[in-house]
Structures are given as structure tokens and as C-alpha cells.
């Protein structure tokens, strides 16, 4: 089942960090995009990306722009969310080495250590194998977080020397690396597919839209 790609609107949290690169990658996946800065930007999304950047800055700006509680609400519903690097940190249930006031949305049952591989001199790019993708994926790690423990319901899609670096749990996808920097849109495609599937399911569950769903379900994928 799928829906038309250009019917989907995916938000990218645009408070600080690599949001432009995500917006460009999603545009190449033929979905509509929104830069999310204020609470109203969270309305009517089919998915949201939490980008890399400085997680403490993002956490403070979530509070100051009044986004924190609404983001938690929309994401703890069934809205698909893709967190990369600092975005993974925001999603985690426990942050080691964070600030006391730092937001942990708790949508991903994982313990994460900020800058867990060291400073910028330890930043690196290496190929990883990803479950569900043929051929390797170039993973770019920038002062990357390290996932040290995960819950039973968290699926590991890729690892680096035994550490989980790409995780999925329900509607949550999270990476310790930066798929938006590698010029390879396959993980964004994977996320868009998750958003499309969720949009269909939401329509199925909404009786008032049942007719619309049937027509959407009948539509062939265009991409």
C-alpha cells in the first residue's frame, strides 16, 4: 500500500543544525517539506525529522520557541519521526553527559552518550551495512553520540563495532550518523515509506475518510 509522495508533508525541525541538508534530501524524495520553528508548523505533518546540530542548543530553543510539549505530543501519537545524531539524542530515554535541563523525549528506549566517540578529530566516515538496503551506506559521524543500551522493542538496522548506529522502534527511526551528508537518499526514502504507510493507516482508522482511503490505496506508486 502506498500513497502519492507529493501528498505527504514532512517537517524538519529548523531551530539549529543541519536542517537545510535534510530539507534538500526530502525534496529529492518528492515530498512536500516544512521548516519547523514554531508550534503551528507542527500541524498537519505526515512525519518529522529531528536533524543533527548541537543538542543542547536545540533543546533550549525547543523550550524558548514553545515547541517542546507539542513536539512530544505529536510524536508520542503515531507521527513517524527520524532523528539523526542530535535528533537521536532528543529522542532517547536517557542522555549521559547531557545538561540537567536537556530534553529527552523518551520516544526511543535507548541510553545515549553525547559525543561518545570523542571530539571532532574522532569524527569519521565509514561504510556500514544496513538491514533492508542492498550495498553499503556511507555513514558520516560528526562528534557522534554513542548508543550504549537499548530496550527489547528497539530493532538495530546497522552497527559500528558492536554499537547500534541505526535503530527503529515503531514509528521512530534514529541514526547516530548523518545520512543527509552522504549524498545517498536511501534512508530518507526508507523514512518517507514509513510516513506513507502511516498516512494510509491513519486514513484507514478514520471512518470519515474511508472512501478517500480506498482511492488512495488504489493509487499506484509514482516513485
Amino acid at each position: 500500500m502506498s500513497t502519492e509522495r507529493d501528498d505527504l508533508t514532512i517537517g524538519v525541525l529548523a531551530l539549529q543544525g543541519a536542517f537545510e541538508a535534510h530539507l534538500e534530501a526530502l525534496a529529492r524524495c518528492d515530498v512536500k517539506t516544512v521548516a519547523v520553528r514554531v508550534p503551528d508548523d507542527l500541524d498537519d505533518l505526515d512525519g518529522i525529522v529531528l536533524p543533527g546540530g548541537e543538542s543542547t542548543t536545540m533543546s533550549m530553543m525547543l523550550e524558548r520557541n514553545g515547541l517542546a510539549s507539542k513536539l512530544g505530543e505529536v510524536c508520542s501519537g503515531s507521527l513517524p519521526v527520524f532523528g539523526t545524531c542530535a535528533g537521536l539524542i532528543l529522542l532517547a530515554s536517557e542522555i549521559v553527559d547531557g545538561r540537567d535541563d536537556q530534553i529527552a523525549l523518551g520516544l526511543l528506549d535507548a541510553v545515549v552518550v553525547r559525543n561518545g566517540y570523542g571530539r571532532q578529530v574522532a569524527s569519521t566516515e565509514v561504510d556500514v551495512d544496513v538491514d533492508g538496503l542492498s550495498g553499503s551506506f556511507r555513514a558520516v559521524y560528526i562528534r557522534a553520540p554513542r548508543v550504549t543500551a537499548i530496550g527489547d522493542d528497539v530493532e538495530v538496522l546497522a552497527s559500528r563495532n558492536g554499537d547500534p548506529v541505526l535503530l527503529r522502534s515503531g514509528a521512530v527511526l534514529a541514526s547516530a550518523f548523518h545520512p543527509e551528508l552522504s549524498g545517498d537518499d536511501r534512508l530518507h526514502e526508507m523514512f518517507v515509506d514509513m510516513c506513507a504507510a502511516q498516512a494510509i493507516e491513519a486514513m484507514m482508522n478514520d471512518t470519515t475518510l474511508r472512501t478517500g482511503c480506498e482511492s488512495a490505496c488504489a493509487t499506484e506508486r509514482t516513485s
Binding site: 529548523a14 531551530l15 539549529q16 543544525g17 543541519a18 536542517f19 537545510e20 541538508a21 543533527g52 546540530g53 548541537e54 542548543t57 545524531c85 542530535a86 571532532q120 578529530v121 574522532a122 569524527s123 569519521t124 566516515e125 565509514v126 561504510d127 556511507r138 558520516v140 559521524y141 560528526i142 562528534r143 548523518h178 551528508l181 552522504s182
Partner: peptide
């Protein structure tokens, strides 16, 4: 592959954007 590639160096600058 590895550390200190141009992509990795520019990558940190990408993370500082909007800050």
C-alpha cells in the same frame, strides 16, 4: 573512508548552522 576527510571537516560546520 576515515577521519579528517573534507566531508567530515565541512560536516561539523553544517552542524553549527543556524547557531
Amino acid at each position: 573512508a576515515g577521519t579528517a576527510t573534507m566531508r567530515v571537516k565541512r560536516g561539523l560546520a553544517e552542524m553549527l548552522r543556524g547557531g
